[in-house]
């Protein structure tokens, strides 16, 4: 296993494809392939995307109840490149529902909060994590946290990984990021700004705000910072400057589910397979993976060749 992906609040994802979806209306799903059930949560999605790129990983975290067992059974079937080790609790793992409407180009998501996790479960997880760190090269800490946990846990886990010389990737909301950064600075960070539009509690409105926020994270010690800007653009900051990555291709908003996780997985892949590649090239490869993912309606992760093809339509513009 080369990578540890941590999913503290996994979910059983249920995707429904409904043409002409409307609230307060009766819908009949056309065929079985219009309803997909698969394991979810950012870390798990990254493991699935890494498997597509031929990288082995161990997915760890906390799952609970019957839903948790269904999730684990499905995950164990996904790929021989994914190993698992989840601490089991009694409260049920959450289910996330996504309704994709390819006619109106909408995606409606309903995400549940997840179970309450006790101290004992966290202790058990950290013990296992420490063992697995001995064999991993990189750690991905991403996604929401269950009730009872704060961003401090991400800081602690990052610190444990950095002390063993492992690469650390963050993909999380600002609330957790702010707390985690007090304990440890990761190598690569992709703040999840959906909803809050803040980084380190600073409001993001203009492009200059995004540039400033990304540059500030580099000043704090991050080697690469990627911030999503207006869906299909990304502000990328490294120690060498700040860039905007974009594309002229049309991105359908209903296809973005899992694109951020494909992005992170592709960056991990690039760092592991080509140590001499620049941080900017790493981000570009991640962007291309996300773009390739948006060609697929369901949460299916892109193949290497599809990412290569998408790379041709990535545009780079230096901002600072």
């Amino acid at each position: 296993m080369k990578v540890i992906t941590v999913t503290l609040n996994p979910a059983l994802d249920r995707e429904f494809i409904i043409e002409g979806f409307a609230v307060n209306a009766y819908h009949r799903i056309k065929t079985q392939d219009h309803m997909v059930m698969n394991p979810g949560g950012k870390g798990i999605n990254v493991s699935m995307a890494l498997a597509k790129l031929g990288v082995s990983s161990i997915a760890i975290g906390i799952i609970g109840g019957y839903t948790g067992r269904v999730l684990l059974t499905e995950l164990n079937k996904t790929s021989p490149l994914i190993s698992t080790s989840f601490v089991h609790i009694e409260e049920e793992t959450r289910e996330n529902i996504v309704i994709v409407d390819p006619v109106n180009h909408t995606m409606t998501s309903i995400n549940s909060p997840g179970p309450r996790v006790d101290k004992k479960a966290v202790e058990l997880l950290l013990k296992r994590y420490e063992i697995y760190l001995s064999r991993a090269e990189a750690v991905v800490l991403s996604g929401s946290l269950p009730q009872g946990l704060t961003g401090e846990i991400y800081g602690k886990m990052a610190k444990m990984a950095r002390e063993k010389g492992r690469m650390v990737f963050f993909d999380m909301i600002d609330e957790y990021l702010t707390e985690a950064l007090e304990i440890c600075v990761p190598d690569v960070v992709k703040p999840d700004v959906r909803g809050s539009y803040t980084i380190l509690q600073q409001r993001l409105e203009s492009l200059e705000d995004y540039v400033e926020a990304a540059a500030n994270l580099v000043k704090r010690g991050c080697k690469l910072v990627v911030v999503s800007y207006e869906i299909k653009n990304d502000v990328v900051a490294t120690q060498d400057g700040v860039w905007l990555i974009s594309t002229e291709e049309k991105v359908e908003p209903e296809n973005i589910l899992g694109a951020g996780d494909a992005y992170v997985a592709a960056m991990v892949y690039k760092r592991l397979t080509d140590r001499n590649t620049s941080m900017l090239e790493t981000a570009k490869f991640g962007y291309a993976a996300a773009l390739a993912k948006t060609k697929k309606l369901t949460k299916e992760m892109p193949e290497y060749d599809e990412i290569g093809e998408a790379l041709n339509s990535c545009k780079l513009e230096r901002l600072r």
Binding site: T84, S85, H88, K120, L124, K127, R128, I131, Y132
Partner: peptide, 18 residues
């Protein structure tokens, strides 16, 4: 491919819980 395991210093209580 589940690598759930314990160390030899883990308590029997932890093992039973797992």
């Amino acid at each position: 491919r589940d690598v759930t395991a314990v160390t030899q210093e883990d308590s029997v209580e932890n093992v039973v819980r797992i």
